[in-house]
Every structure is written in C-alpha cells, then in structure tokens.
Amino acid sequence: MSDGAEEPVAGKKTPSVFLERQSYRRRRLMDAARLLPVLGALLFAVPLIWPRAGQPGAVQSSHGVIYIFTVWAVLILGNLWFGHLTRSWSGRDPVDPGREGDSFPPAGG
C-alpha cells in the first residue's frame, strides 16, 4: 500500500524522504483507524472494574446502560467519520483501483 504513489512533483526525480502533507495525513488516519478497535475494547472493558451488586457502591444498571450505549455511539461516529474521510480518496485508494463512484448513497446517509 504505497501512498508514495502520488504524482511526483515536477522537477523532482527521486521521491522525497518525507511524504507529502496529504499522504502523511492519510497514513495517520489509517493509524487512527487501527487504534479505534483497541480503544473500543478498552472502553468496553471498563465495566470489569465496576463494583458489582452486593458490593459497596455498586453501579446502577441505568448508569451501565448509559455508559455502554454512549461509548457505542461514539465508536460508530468515529467509524462513520473515518469512512467519510476515506471515501474522498477512493479514486487513488490502492484498495479499489476499479470503478469509481458508486452512484448509490451510503446506507442511512
């Protein structure tokens, strides 16, 4: 997956050591996408340390519900955001060099 496959800047023959700003952003975005499930797993693991029923200070179920579903929604939004950003570079995306631009709008979008 070479992001260096950008069009070379006129006059430069050898690729630069540093990526162009756009490619750099793209790579950091991919890093973020890789971290998202880790973050999700960590956040979903938080209830493991909550005091359980019968222990002093046991967490109310309603709080649990609110916490879980909030984290869930935030993760979905994060993924939506990432999907939205990656859509814009589908043309040069090495993932799908085939046809570009699905005419159908994304589900729920």
Partner: peptide, 21 residues
C-alpha cells in the same frame, strides 16, 4: 424507564468480569 431499571431485580451491576470478557 431508567428509574424502573434501577428498581428492578437487575437494577444493580451484576456482570461477572470473566464472562464479560
């Protein structure tokens, strides 16, 4: 509804950590 949840038999957090993971 939230109040009803807290008042119910499952009103307190009772998840077993090992099962959760």
């Amino acid at each position: 509804t939230l109040a009803r949840i807290d008042a119910s038999p499952i009103g307190e957090w009772q998840v077993n950590g090992s099962r959760w993971a």
